[in-house]
């Protein structure tokens, strides 16, 4: 059997607490539903009108004691549920105090930007985290309301322009956790996906080091031509590549694009072939994306792919 996701695979202490509470409430709910279903089923069998019976049954107008009892029972259930709610929230949402965020998450139409203020790393759509650590995320938005949600790692929280939110997050086990934007944010809301890559402390540090390397810009060959096209074909109006004049943050930072697993915030796996397809016409794979069809020629696409894939 394939592994079920979401609540069936809680992978952080926060998510485990939330999943436990959910299971508990679902169990109580099934119990209550069962009582009602059994009562109604009994009524249907027992109190069905006989086909020849035209007499009226006993006219019962109610019972004050019963009304009091079935008002008080829900009060008790709710008291318990509210207590559980409060204690679970203590676990998953402790006060932030003066702590600095480990990662700043910025929602864009339709991709995610991740900034690590402690190291200066800036990346997109794929968030690397060290495993077993409770990290503080600051959630922001540059345009409309988005919502950061990785179902196996914890709660979801809105990314709102003009309003900063915080979220505690971690992963108990190494692995890739998939998430997505959960607040409707426009045409490509469906393809605003998140990959969280939880790795050991050493792997994470190594990744950070790699991300901070400013690559050498190729001056010759096909990649050199690609580098030149990147600066002249309007790519630089939206994207950043460190070590070059391209420094815009409208689209994702592409400095270390070749290290990422997907392109287009999760629409295609990252490979030279897919990058080629994407550059011919991003609108074919992500209709409505803010990256227009640049109408590049075969040789231009080939050069830009060689440049982006070759950045080290």
């Amino acid at each position: 059997m394939e592994k079920l996701g979401g609540i069936f695979n809680p992978s952080s202490p926060e998510m485990e607490a939330m999943a436990d509470l959910t299971y508990y409430v679902i169990a109580i709910s099934i119990g209550i539903l069962a009582i009602i279903v059994v009562a109604v089923a009994y009524i249907i069998i027992r109190y069905r009108k006989g086909s020849k019976d035209s007499s009226e049954p006993y006219q019962n107008f109610g019972d004050l004691r019963l009304e009091i009892v079935w008002t008080l029972i829900p009060v008790a259930i709710i008291a318990v549920l509210f207590q559980l709610t409060c204690s679970t929230m203590k676990t998953i949402d402790p006060p932030i105090g003066n702590e600095e965020p480990d990662i700043v998450v910025i929602g864009h139409q339709w991709w995610w930007e991740f900034y690590y203020p402690k190291s200066g790393v800036l990346t997109a759509n794929e968030m690397h985290i060290p495993v077993g650590k409770k990290l503080l995320l600051r959630i922001e938005s540059i345009d409309v309301i988005h919502d950061f949600w990785v179902p196996e790692l914890g709660p979801k929280i809105d990314a709102i322009p003009g309003h900063t939110n915080h979220l505690w997050m971690g992963a108990s086990e190494p692995g890739v956790y998939l998430g997505a934007c959960a607040e409707f944010c426009g045409t490509q809301h469906a393809n605003m996906r998140i990959r969280v890559i939880a790795e050991t402390e050493e792997e994470f540090n190594e990744w950070q080091k790699q991300e901070l390397v400013v690559p050498r810009t190729p001056r010759s060959g096909i990649a050199g031509k690609g580098a030149e096209l990147f600066q002249t074909k309007a790519c630089m109006n939206c994207h950043t590549i460190k070590g070059t004049p391209a420094a815009a943050r409208i689209g994702p930072d592409l400095t270390h694009l070749n290290k990422r697993q997907t392109i287009g915030a999760g629409v295609l796996t990252n490979s030279p072939e897919n990058l080629t397809k994407w550059l011919y016409n991003p609108q074919k794979y992500k209709q409505g994306s803010l990256m227009p069809n640049m109408k590049l020629s075969d040789s231009e696409v080939e050069a830009i792919v060689a440049y982006l894939e070759g950045l080290k």
Partner: peptide, 24 residues
């Protein structure tokens, strides 16, 4: 029966942590 199901899931989503799991 259908409305009781709605009511029970409604109480569940009124609990903030469960809402954080299932909202949207």
């Amino acid at each position: 029966i259908e409305f009781v199901i709605a009511g029970l899931t409604g109480v569940a989503v009124a609990s903030v942590p469960i809402d954080w799991v299932v909202t949207d």
